[in-house]
Amino acid sequence: MFPILKKRVLNPTVTYMEILAPRVAKKAQPGQFIMLRIDENGERIPLTIAGYDREEGTVTIIFQKVGYTTYSLDGLEEGDSLLDFVGPLGRASDFDGMRKVAVVGGGLGVAIAYPQAKALHDLGAEVDFIVGFRNKDLIILEEEFSAACSDLTIMTDDGSNGRKGFVTTALQEKLEAGAEYDAVIAIGPLMMMKAVCELTREKKIPTIVSMNSVMVDGTGMCGCCRLTVGGETKFACVDGPDFDGHQVDFDEAMARSRMYFDEEQLSMEKHACQLGGKKQ
């Protein structure tokens, strides 16, 4: 069992947790992920490692409530435990030769982009961190973000914080203003990563994306997480999750991510009636 030591609700949809998992904490690197299962009937889901403390033996996860498992996870409190927690899985990010970088995070990718920005910043790289939220009430971890980069840009879809637009808008402005990046790291919804890659492709800026495929085992055993990169089939869980964004077949990845859309609806209905049941 893996106890939840700390829980913080960052905004109505995003939650932060520290889990006691010393073996995972000991080996974790930015870019890697864990697979967890809440209980005996649960699904295995991948979550990016958002931070770790090797001494305390804790691993931080930050997740957005998007489906049945993340809603159930959010229902747990400090002192509760997760049944299964395995990692670190996947390859660690490779930051070699990156002296000036734009790290772009959108949607649930914001939290995942944070450890990357922080790692690069700690390595001495100049980091432009661009993050996007739907509105200003959803902005999270602003302090942590500022501390992890040289320049923080926060965009909102509705402009409620004064900076209206998508993260790509901000990136484009920076590029037009003459920013020269060794690399761009884009993490977030597939649409957003695809849009970033389209921007950087013409300018030939190496762009790394983090592929959040549907996974079952996370160890290379099922092939569920496969995607096409440069015409070849790769497994996101072992060959990634980081890939050269200019080589990724995003249209295929978007189709594959919708595989279980109907089932997810069904699970959510079950979740809703369980919650309803508890109240009575």
């Binding site: 009937n41 649960g42 699904e43 295995r44 049945y68 498992t69 079952v216 595989m259 279980y260 089932e263 997810e264 069904l266 699970s267 079950k270």
Partner: peptide
């Protein structure tokens, strides 16, 4: 392993 034949009682789906 994930008992998808018992979905949604078990949370893992299959199509």
């Amino acid at each position: 392993l994930m008992k998808a034949y018992d979905f949604p009682q078990h949370a893992t789906p299959i199509k």
